Amino acid sequence: MKLTIFHIDAFTDTPFKGNPAAVVPLNTWLPEADMQAIATENNLSETAFFVLDANGKFHIRWFSPMTEIAFCGHATLASAYVLFRHQMAASPVTFWAKAVGDIVVVQGDDGLIEMSFPNREPSPLAAADIPPALKEGLSIAPLEVLKNQQAYIAVYGRQDDVLNVVPDLQRLKALAPLDVAVTAPGVQHDFASRYFWPANGGDEDPVTGSIHAGLAPYWARRLDQPLLTALQASRRGGLLTCRVEGDRVYVSGSCVQYLEGTIEV
């Protein structure tokens, strides 16, 4: 069987920056083991697969090299980019995923692609509830720790702390199934972050759209502003625009195509 595959750099307008995702459009679902094998072979943060249903929604699933992921932003952004550019889909398009429901995606006149996520604002943890593995797993002690469905979020006072923190990945792996985000006020952006996910995908994720469904509400409340710019300060780096409106968080970004090809399975 031959399948078309796209390799897209998401949350960037510069090749070789942002977060690379593979996108594999399907007519019908492959066996789960095959999708996982393709994602492992691709060895990118995520590989997205989607199938159009009879109601016009694209059911989407995401796989890291290690496991299926419940919620992925950058590979959804990349999938929308493929639909708009290669399948001439009309904006908006709607994706559906079991863990998050509908994700409506709109392409703006400025070329930015905006995704509508559920608001996953994190809750603060009392000091006694912070897991020892989190305290031992970060080289700089955070000012506070939050938690949502996806990750522990360590909050720092300065962007330099986010840049300089060194994770002990073996310690953080013990926090599975949750990952770890670190965040602080930004210098040229409203806030900055990094994301570590040794239990689910790898060491450090270049740009994590999904965690901004939690980071953006936190910073919107703290800064008292609903519109935010965000830097994910990984080695590749990525830029996001976030807008918080009630129970939805809108996350926008750009994409750059690196590759279009064919795989055989």
Rank of each mutant, 00 (worst) to 15 (best):
G238S: 07
I113M: 03
R85Q: 15
E144C: 06
M115A: 01
A184L: 07
G246F: 06
R222M: 08
H86G: 04
S193P: 01
Y81V: 00
S254W: 02
L172H: 10
A199G: 12
C255G: 10
T76L: 00
A216T: 05
Y195W: 14
T12Y: 03
R235T: 12
T94R: 02
A90Y: 06
V155Q: 03
D179S: 15
G238Y: 02
A184S: 09
G108F: 00
T40L: 11
H212A: 08
E204G: 01
I8K: 00
D160K: 02
A39H: 06
A220D: 13
H189T: 14
A99E: 08
A174H: 10
I5G: 10
G56A: 08
F16Q: 02
A199L: 06
D247Y: 03
P131T: 08
A220N: 01
P185T: 02
R158P: 06
G202W: 00
R158S: 13
L228H: 00
E260V: 14
E245G: 03
C72D: 08
A33E: 15
L259K: 14
T262H: 11
A33T: 12
D109F: 10
P217D: 01
E260I: 13
D53I: 11
D161Y: 11
S252Y: 00
H74C: 02
Q170A: 11
L215N: 07
F11L: 14
G137Q: 15
E114I: 03
A33M: 10
N19L: 07
W197G: 14
G73W: 12
A37H: 04
C255R: 09
D13F: 08
G157L: 03
V82Q: 05
A70I: 13
N19K: 11
Q170L: 07
N164A: 15
L3K: 11
V93T: 06
A48I: 09
I211H: 02
L172D: 11
L52T: 07
N119C: 15
V162G: 12
S45Y: 04
Q107H: 04
I130Q: 03
T67I: 13
I153N: 07
S64V: 13
A127I: 14
G73L: 03
R236E: 01
I140M: 00
A199P: 09
D160R: 03
T67E: 10
T208N: 03
F191E: 04
I153M: 14
V182P: 00
F84A: 02
I211Q: 04
I38R: 00
G238M: 11
S123I: 14
V256G: 09
V165N: 02
Q107N: 05
L3C: 10
E204K: 01
D53R: 05
P206R: 04
F71M: 13
V162T: 07
N27K: 09
G101L: 10
T76A: 07
A54Y: 05
K2M: 14
D247S: 10
A233F: 11
Q87P: 10
M88T: 08
A174F: 02
D9W: 00
S254F: 09
T40G: 01
N148A: 12
G237N: 11
N164G: 06
V249R: 01
N27H: 07
D205R: 13
R236P: 05
V24S: 09
R222K: 14
K173P: 15
S234R: 10
Y218C: 05
F16E: 05
